[in-house]
Amino acid sequence: MRLEPRIASPAQTILYPVAAFAATFAFAALLVLLAGVSPLGVFRLVFLGAAGSQFALLETLTRATPLIFTGLAVTVAFRAKLWNIGAEAQLYIGAVVTVVLGTGAVAAPSWALVPLIALAAMLAGGLLLLGPALLKTRFGVDEVVTTLLLNFIVLLFVSLLLEGPLKDPMGLGWPQSQRVVAEAQWPRLVQGKRLHMGFAVAILAALAVWLMLARSVLGYEMRAVGHNAAAARFAGIPVNRVLALTALISGGLAALGGVAEVSGLKGNLTLDLSPGFGYTGIVVAMLALLHPLGVVASAIFVAGIFVGADAMSRAVGVPSYIAEVMTATALLTMGTAIVFTRYRIRWR
């Protein structure tokens, strides 16, 4: 068996991804059958839970917000073939900076405090990824392992802070930080609902990343480094500097997701701020084929599955982990579909 490059017909470029989603739902249906429940009923509940009412839709968009940020972080990094698997840690560092500056340490009006926190958090997140990027360019250390291990180190660091210097004295002993002051909070987009400014910022960020990748010199250099680092170097592109800038931008985007979660939604920092947004961001980015605007759509889709599965799980006893199974399966089937659009399989 071998693969032969080809240019797929328009029908095929649509058909294969659709088949990938069909396969994902078929696999999920099989698992739901194991639970002894009708798959169609479960899918209906997932859909209603994700988009069946105004409340459900807003909840889905709220959940999509951090995923857009981590999805963009992964997109930027993966485009330059910088394998940032550490968006989880960068998001948490963003949240840490938010509560360090936002719980009363800096007294400033809202128009100054909100951007100050955002910029400081992005810098911290960027620097957190710059470390692995420099280790890669200077010492040849694989950034996959270092960014993965940093996720564990940073989570322990957050735990240390929440049981020490950042612990809320009024928190009844729970490891949680104080709430951010009113001036640091991000406003709600819909009065009385949970959807907050973070969603709007996320969309602006997606537009900005799209412009940068498609229209700027840096974006061009990043894509060149991603395609072929040796050729890029030969063409005079400063590969190491491009990778360093990529790291700063990617880490900064993930950190901004952490700011949004704390300032826009939760109000304080806890150890369960992120149920794996950093890892799910990889799925989001890959489903969007590393296109920044596609990230918005795929984040909303993935968030819908998670929110819908939660609602479904409360109604019938199918474990909500079905959402994680579905997103992971979608990642693998979509990757396969892309291969099929680009290559023809020859069996001899």
Binding site: V283, Y321, L332
Partner: peptide, 13 residues
């Protein structure tokens, strides 16, 4: 990464 996510979530499920 996809295999890790799949194996973990299938196990938890």
């Amino acid at each position: 990464i996809g295999i890790t996510l799949l194996a973990t979530s299938l196990t938890y499920y």
